[in-house]
């Protein structure tokens, strides 16, 4: 569960005020909005990467407002993957467990398990350079899921992919959600992505949030206009 209780975030010349959001446990939520409307800022606030001015953030019933990112049990997949350039795929997949000082055998087993599941078993010893866009995002998803997070935050994870890869990744994200039951907050401006994945759709328009049927109606109208 992700619960934003009257959150205000202020940036240079930009403010998001009195945000109230609720995403139920296990839901696949898609947050849509135009470029620059503050979607990523909201996701960063959930992860603990962006300080908030007022309000409370609850994740899975815990008040995490004052918790550092590492203790919130969230996984983050940025737009470009932001893979660790000096590490092999295996090291990336094992990173979260290495930080938690898990035994080496367990780390290696988890990295292999994730790699097989995500279809990147043949890439374990490769470094990010030279991986395709789809492969990079699979590594980033695996890295985020390694320590069994409660919440998976995806920041436009498919925006840099070509059309062919895009379809495959939509299926993959659906599988990831079904297999793990993780609560997902997926940010995008792509209507097709939103339609394919969203169990819970939220649209940001002029500082307001449209949810439920209102949001679906808005999405349908925008698609007709396009």
């Amino acid at each position: 569960m992700i619960h934003f209780d009257n959150i205000t975030i202020r940036l240079d010349g930009f403010a998001l005020e009195n945000i109230n959001l609720h995403i139920p446990t296990g839901a696949y939520a898609v947050l849509m909005g135009r470029t620059g409307c503050g979607k990523t800022t909201i996701l960063e606030a959930a992860c603990g990467l962006r300080p908030i001015e007022s309000g409370r953030i609850h994740l899975m019933g815990r008040d995490v407002t004052d918790m550092p990112p590492g203790r919130r049990n969230v996984g983050l997949v940025p737009q470009d993957g932001a893979l660790f350039t000096t590490m092999t795929v295996e090291q990336q997949l094992g990173f979260a467990l290495r930080v938690r000082h898990r035994p080496k055998g367990e780390i290696a087993a988890r990295a292999r398990e994730l790699a097989e599941w995500l279809g990147i078993g043949h890439l374990l010893h490769r470094r990010p350079h030279g991986l395709s866009g789809g492969e990079r995002q699979r590594v980033a998803i695996g890295r985020a899921l390694a320590a069994h997070p409660d919440i998976l935050c995806l920041d436009e994870p498919l925006s840099a992919l070509d059309e062919e890869t895009h379809g495959g990744m939509l299926d993959l994200l659906r599988h990831v959600h079904e297999d793990t039951g993780v609560t997902v907050l997926h940010i995008t401006h792509n209507r097709r992505e939103a339609r394919a994945l969203a169990q819970s759709l939220i649209i940001m328009r002029g500082g307001r949030f449209l949810e439920g049927e209102t949001a679906r109606g808005q999405l349908a109208r925008e698609e007709d206009d396009a």
């Binding site: 990467l49 590492g70 203790r71 969230v74 940025p78 990173f95 930080v99 320590a147």
Partner: peptide, 9 residues
């Protein structure tokens, strides 16, 4: 990269 690392613990 750094931000991902801090979310990972």
């Amino acid at each position: 990269q750094e931000q991902v690392a801090v979310t990972l613990g």
